[in-house]
């Protein structure tokens, strides 16, 4: 039932953004540094949400664009209607992930976010070596960045052992349990 609800309605209910306010001027796309690399440019994505069809919603949730968005906020800063596109992107990512719709090509991005958050969950802070290791395991991109890692190590930019919070991150683990990992 819940999943059949149109994305535009979910966005209005969950984060209070009304997609019908967009009048398709395209200023968001014009100013977006990654628009040329997106499968669906920001203003086009807004149009798809406005149509409110199942097909359009599926296309949005399965797009790479929502994962490419850098949240640089250029779009909302210049939007004449002040539509919070970064908030829309954030929420679409959450819906895409929880609904199992993540685009194949966006998996490395999701993998990175997951690895990052895993580090935070277990240590309370990020730990680059662990992060990269986990990310490589998730994506099997084993050779990536092997060229700069030793340099970074030599320049003292990488910690060998993770920094941890006083209780080994239990407090932070609890935050995860109560938010992103919550089962309800």
């Amino acid at each position: 039932m819940e999943d059949k609800k149109r994305l535009s309605i979910k966005l209005a209910e969950d984060i209070g953004v009304d997609v019908s306010r967009c009048y398709q001027c395209g200023k968001c796309t014009a100013g977006c540094v990654l628009a040329p690399d997106m499968d669906i440019a920001p203003s086009f994505l807004m149009r798809l949400l406005q149509t409110g069809t199942e097909k359009a919603d599926a296309r949005v949730l399965g797009s790479t664009a929502i994962w490419l968005c850098l949240s640089c906020e250029n779009c909302v800063a210049r939007c004449p209607m002040e539509i919070d596109l970064p908030a829309i992107m954030d929420h679409l990512r959450e819906l895409s992930r929880t609904g199992g719709r993540v685009n194949e090509k966006a998996r490395p991005i999701v993998a990175f976010h997951k690895s990052f958050l895993d580090m935070v969950k277990h240590n309370g802070r990020t730990y680059e070596i662990g992060l990269v290791a986990e990310y490589k395991m998730r994506t099997m991109r084993l050779m990536q960045d092997v060229d700069i890692a030793p340099t970074m190590m030599a320049k003292g930019k990488l910690n060998i052992v993770p920094e941890r919070l006083k209780d080994n991150g239990d407090k932070v683990g609890r935050i995860f349990a109560n938010t992103i990992d919550k089962k309800d």
Binding site: S71, L117, L165, V172, F176
Partner: peptide
């Protein structure tokens, strides 16, 4: 003392609640 990670881009890409909760601590 005892600060934690703010969650950065990863947190708000994945969960709004988490992205607010980490900085809130």
């Amino acid at each position: 003392d005892d600060w934690n990670c703010c969650g950065a881009t990863a947190a708000h890409s994945m969960s709004r609640e988490l992205s607010v909760a980490l900085p809130a601590r």
